[in-house]
Every structure is written in C-alpha cells, then in structure tokens.
C-alpha cells in the first residue's frame, strides 16, 4: 500500500540545510496498522509531512498503491490519503460549524448526497446530527477529535495518517479515541500510519512498529515481540523500559 524507499530529507536552513530524515525504508501492506515511535525530533512527523505533501524536495521514492507520490497531485492524493492531527484545537477551523467542516471535502470533490454522507460519517465516529450547527469551541477535546476523524474518513480514503491523535487528550478520552480508531480500522479496511511517542498507544493499535532515532529507523519490531520485550536494538530496550516503568 505504502512503500517508502531510501527517503531522505534536508530541512533547508538559513545558512546550511540540516538532514532530518536519512535513508528511511518502510513497506506497509493493505489494511495494516503501522506505528512510528521515537522521541521528539526523531523525524516521525517529518515522514508524515513528506507523505502529506507539506515537505517538498525530499529524495528517494515513495509509492502509494504502486503509484509514485512525486507524480500524483495533492488533489489525487486526497482520494486515497487523509490525516488526523495531534492538536484537536488547531485542526478544526474555529469559525466553521461542524456542518461546514464536514461539508468542505465533499464540496471540493463535487460529490452529491452530501447530507447522507455527513450523517454517516458522524455516526461512524459516535456523534449525532445535533452537533452539526455547533462551532468547534463548543465541543470538548474528545468530541473535536471525533469530528477531525469524521472529516478524515468522509471521503472514504484507503490510508489515514495519524499524527499523535491521542497525545493532546485526557487518558480516559484517549482510550475512547483509540477504540474508535480500532473499530473504524476494522469496518472500513483502512491502512493506518500512526506516529506516537507513547509505546502503550502504539502497542494497542499497531501490528508493527518502527523505532526512530535522530532521523533513522533503528529497528522494526512486531507487536508480539514488543510486548514480550523481544527487541534487538539498545535504544528500543531503553524506550521499552521507560514505558514499563511508567505503568
């Protein structure tokens, strides 16, 4: 579904550019849920930004469903790939109602049967139609994140990029959103690429995890190996220990 080969990216700076991604190789199958874990600044989100088209000028090859990403326009990309952001407060336009937020992707695509699709997407994320005339500031953080997820799935994409979708939320709300993501994954046959610094969240959702450190992938481990502590690289062990000691 997603294949990333020898992806490198240099962040252009004022004097010299800084390499923030170095020789990344990932291959994600259809319907898989793949995690990226690592500390801040390790380049997890940068991979998503390369995929989402926010970072231009990367080197290497990215292919989505066999099609080279460099040759697909943002408009074509929007049919297969959507993103859920970390901050539910910044991800929704503060002066758009929920109706407008969910209507926008449909209007851009020029689709008909808008209201049915909006209602279905809302129902999918566990909200009802009474939310439609409201503004984002009238919603709680968890409800906003649900709206953001509804916006991501309303166009029936195959891939959803999740940029720390739960880290800005309360622990109890985190669990709700994770459960929601799990059930959507099953019902819609979605492929997830999820970024998180929380191994617990990743282990809950993802079958395979890539551990990142300073722009490189140090190890790709399966969930079972992660849970059993069956990891090879020293850095992964440190991360795992941290995660266990917190619990």
């Amino acid at each position: 579904m997603i294949s990333i080969q020898s992806l490198s990216f240099d962040m252009p700076g004022s004097t010299k550019s800084k390499r923030i991604l170095n020789d990344i190789n990932i291959s994600i199958g259809k319907g898989e849920c793949f995690g990226l874990v690592g500390e801040s600044g390790s380049g997890k989100t940068s991979i998503l930004k390369c995929l989402a088209g926010q970072f231009q000028g990367w080197e290497g090859a990215i292919a989505i469903q066999g099609k080279s990403l460099a040759e697909t326009s943002l408009k074509e990309r929007s049919n297969t790939m959507q993103m859920v952001f970390q901050d539910p407060y910044g991800a929704l336009h503060p002066r758009h109602t929920i109706r407008k937020i969910l209507n926008e992707p449909l209007a851009i695509k020029g689709l008909s049967d808008k209201s049915e699709r909006i209602l279905k997407a809302l129902k999918d994320v566990g909200l009802d139609e009474t939310f439609l005339p409201r503004y984002p500031h009238q919603l709680s953080g968890g409800q906003r994140q649900r709206v953001a997820i509804a916006r991501a799935i309303i166009l029936d994409p195959d891939i959803i990029l999740l940029d720390e979708p739960t880290s800005a939320l309360d622990v109890s709300v985190q669990a709700e959103i994770l459960n929601l993501l799990t059930s959507l994954h099953r019902r819609h046959q979605l492929t997830y690429l999820m970024v998180s610094h929380d191994l617990g969240v990743i282990a809950h959702l993802c079958e395979r995890v890539a551990v990142m450190k300073s722009g490189e992938i140090v190890e790709v481990v399966s969930r079972d190996d992660l849970v059993e502590g069956n990891v090879a690289h020293a850095y992964t062990k440190v991360l795992l220990q941290h995660a266990l000691s917190r619990e």
Binding site: K75, E76, N79, M81, F85
Partner: peptide, 24 residues
Amino acid sequence: DYVVAAQLQGASACRVLFHYISLM
C-alpha cells in the same frame, strides 16, 4: 492544521484563501 487539512482534501488555493484564511 486546518489549512493543511484543507490542502489534503484537495482544496484549491482560491478556496483556501476565501473559505479559510480570509475568514480568520
């Protein structure tokens, strides 16, 4: 993020300017 989200939905520059940025 909401402008990035609109771009990811395939919104044209014109649409982003009128529906998202001007409003703010």
